[in-house]
Structures are given as C-alpha cells and as structure tokens.
C-alpha cells in the first residue's frame, strides 16, 4: 500500500488570476456557484453555468489533468446516481433490459445529475487548488467573524482547520511507518478476506490514535508555552485586502448570478 500517493485538498502553487484573488472572494464565489449549479431547468441555463466554470478553470492555469483527478473519488457515487436516475424514473421507455426500462425522462435526469455533480466538484476543487490552506482558513475566519456574536467560534474553527490540514501529511507518514513496523512482525495488509483485512488494521489504528493524541497534547503545550490565548486581540501578519481584481470578480459574479436567476425566473433556462 502506498500512502504517499494520498493527497487531500491539494494546493497547486501558481500565480494566476484566480490564485491572486482574495480567499473571501473565492469562498463566496464557490458558494454562489454551487447554488447557481442547482438553479437552471433548461439547456441555456446549464450552458451558462458550465461556461462560467470552464472559464474559471482556464483562468486558474491549473492543468486540466489535475482537476480531473479530483473527480476520481466521486466516480462510483456518480455512477450510482446516474444508474438510479436512468432506471427508476417513471416515463416513456426507451430501452428494455429484463423487467427494467430506461426512460427518456430518466436519461435527462441522469445527465442533469452528472453535470451538476461534475460542476460542483470542479468548482470546489478550484477553490482548494488555487488557495493555500493558510489563506483559505484566514478567509473563512474573516467571513465567519460577523457571526461571532451569535456564538459562532470563528477563530477556533479556522484554527482547527489549519491544524487538521497541517497534520494530514504527518499522520500519513506515521501510518506508513507503523504499517511497515507491523509488517516486519508478520502482519499482512494485502491479502485475506475483507473482514480479516479490517481486523488487520487494528495494529495500525491503535498506535496511530495514541500518536495523534500525544501530538495534540504536545502541540497544545507548545502553543501555550508561546503565549497563545485564542482569537481575542490577536493580530495578523498578513492582512487580507480586496484589490482591483477582486472588485472585477465581484462585478462578474453579480452579473452571472443575475443572469442565472433571470433565466430561471423567465422560464428560459
């Protein structure tokens, strides 16, 4: 098993227009886009949303190969969605397979579901691909701050996210090491029934959890030792600031949203 190949929420370093945007702009844009993806009912609407996403991909200068790789994990989920929609939607039958029929309505719904899923995942990956984890959490914290009076622990949430992201590679490395050590003691993670393999993970999971708790403890102590006291009164080394690029992005976003909503309301898309 090669754990080094695991990549989660990967950042693709670069200096494109999308990379330079303020993380808040990008967060809001993804939020708007994911609503917009579910609004259209007819072809023109979908075309507009798809075009917008594709332009964003082009602007990010991230290789398309990289973006498609992010789609891999949802392939099974997508296949199931498409199959269920195709077979289980009542309507005019097109093909008959045994007692199951694919209906015209089913095909349309499948296509819609597939397009929506792909667009959703692509736009979400664009966010993480073009925004470094630190900026992302900074942006999230700033966006959540107005909600603090309502009891939303903005700073704490952001900190948790930063720490989680920071420790993913560490934990992956640790898991790899523990697996090797148990393999040296004759453990076998590659063969046997699914249940046996699942049981075989106990000698990996237990030390991994123990290590994670130990690390958490040490990290907390180290933070306290350096005077960390939470979010109040804490200043930032890098202040987030909107630039001209952001204002242009906002303008385009507003236009796009109006267009999508307009198409929907007028019943044309």
């Amino acid at each position: 098993m090669n754990l080094q190949a695991v990549t989660i929420g990967q950042y693709f370093p670069g200096d494109s227009y999308l990379h330079r945007l303020d993380p808040r702009t990008k967060l809001i844009a993804v939020l708007l886009l994911s609503v917009a993806i579910f609004l259209p009912r007819y072809f023109p609407g979908y075309l507009l949303v798809a075009l917008f996403t594709m332009i964003a991909v082009a602007l990010s200068r991230v290789p398309v190969k990289f973006i498609l790789r992010g789609l891999k994990p949802i392939m099974i989920f997508m296949a199931i969605t498409v199959l269920f929609n195709a077979f289980l939607t009542p309507g005019e039958p097109l093909f008959q397979i045994g007692r199951w029929a694919i209906t015209r309505e089913g095909l349309v719904l499948s296509a819609v579901a597939a397009v929506r899923l792909v667009l959703l995942v692509v736009s979400a990956s664009l966010l993480t691909l073009t925004t470094s984890p630190i900026l992302l959490t900074d942006g999230l914290e700033r966006l959540l701050r107005p909600l603090a009076p309502l009891g939303v622990p903005a700073h704490e949430l952001a900190l948790m996210m930063t720490i989680a992201l920071r420790f993913i590679p560490t934990l992956v490395e640790e898991a790899d090491r523990i697996m090797r050590a148990q393999e040296a003691r004759g453990a076998d993670f590659r063969s046997g029934s699914l249940i046996n393999r699942a049981k075989g993970l106990i000698p990996v999971m237990v030390p991994l959890f123990v290590a994670a708790f130990r690390r958490a403890d040490e990290l907390a102590t180290a933070m306290e030792a350096r005077g960390y006291r939470g979010g109040t009164g804490r200043t930032k080394m890098k202040q987030l600031a909107f630039s001209g690029a952001d204002y242009r992005a906002w303008a385009i976003l507003v236009l796009f949203t109006v267009a999508v909503v307009g198409l929907r309301v007028t019943g044309r898309g």
């Binding site: 523990i178 003691r185 004759g186």
Partner: peptide, 24 residues
C-alpha cells in the same frame, strides 16, 4: 524500528508480544 514503542497496540503486554508469533 526507531522508537519501536510507538507501534505497541495490544491490550496487554502479553497480547502485543504474541502478535508476531501468531502471525506466523
């Protein structure tokens, strides 16, 4: 391995030491 105690997982010391022989 280095720091081999970080790979201990058994409920008891006996269980942990028996892991290798049982795998055999």
């Amino acid at each position: 391995f280095q720091y081999p105690e970080y790979q201990l997982f058994g409920e008891t010391i006996h269980e942990d030491i028996a892991f290798g022989p049982r795998n055999m």
